[in-house]
Amino acid sequence: MMGVFRYDNKYAAPTKEQRERYMKGDSEEHLFGPDGQIMLIVYDEAAYLKDDIDGTRILFTGAKDKEKVYDEIKRLLDFHAHREDGSRSFL
């Protein structure tokens, strides 16, 4: 099953089956925000986004859904930059 899997708790994570199926092979890591609080890990068949500020984790699988990760990163950066308690360093 391809799609977008959202984990709204920093202790929740992709299942063992999801890790074995999608999160394998070569990967690239990219850090965003102050102190690298938002991490993107890109695999051949998936993209995994970890937001350590609010604990959200999102697994994007399949070529079509994997491309959605970049829109989500933009949304997260904008969200954190404009929060009342947000860091000005996101700007």
Results as ranks from 00 to 15, higher is better:
38 I>L: 04
69 V>H: 11
15 T>L: 02
5 F>C: 03
5 F>T: 02
61 T>I: 05
87 S>T: 11
53 I>P: 00
48 Y>R: 04
50 K>H: 10
54 D>Q: 04
72 E>T: 13
34 P>Y: 01
31 L>N: 08
91 L>Y: 15
83 R>Q: 12
76 L>K: 00
50 K>P: 11
81 A>Q: 11
7 Y>C: 00
2 M>D: 06
20 E>A: 11
27 S>Y: 11
35 D>N: 03
60 F>W: 03
72 E>K: 07
85 D>G: 12
48 Y>F: 09
71 D>I: 14
82 H>S: 09
14 P>I: 10
43 Y>F: 09
64 K>Q: 10
52 D>N: 12
31 L>T: 14
58 I>A: 06
86 G>N: 03
59 L>S: 00
42 V>Y: 03
15 T>M: 02
63 A>V: 15
26 D>A: 12
28 E>M: 01
52 D>T: 14
23 M>L: 09
72 E>P: 05
23 M>G: 03
83 R>N: 12
14 P>F: 13
1 M>Y: 08
17 E>Q: 07
19 R>I: 09
9 N>S: 11
60 F>C: 01
60 F>Q: 01
15 T>W: 10
51 D>W: 12
34 P>A: 01
56 T>H: 10
65 D>R: 09
30 H>E: 00
50 K>C: 14
5 F>N: 00
28 E>K: 00
58 I>H: 07
51 D>R: 07
2 M>A: 08
8 D>A: 04
14 P>V: 12
7 Y>V: 04
13 A>Q: 01
63 A>D: 12
61 T>Y: 03
55 G>R: 06
64 K>I: 10
50 K>T: 13
86 G>I: 06
62 G>F: 07
82 H>D: 04
61 T>A: 01
58 I>Q: 05
86 G>M: 03
86 G>Y: 04
58 I>S: 02
21 R>D: 12
59 L>Q: 00
57 R>F: 06
32 F>M: 04
51 D>Q: 10
85 D>L: 13
62 G>R: 02
66 K>D: 08
42 V>I: 06
80 H>R: 00
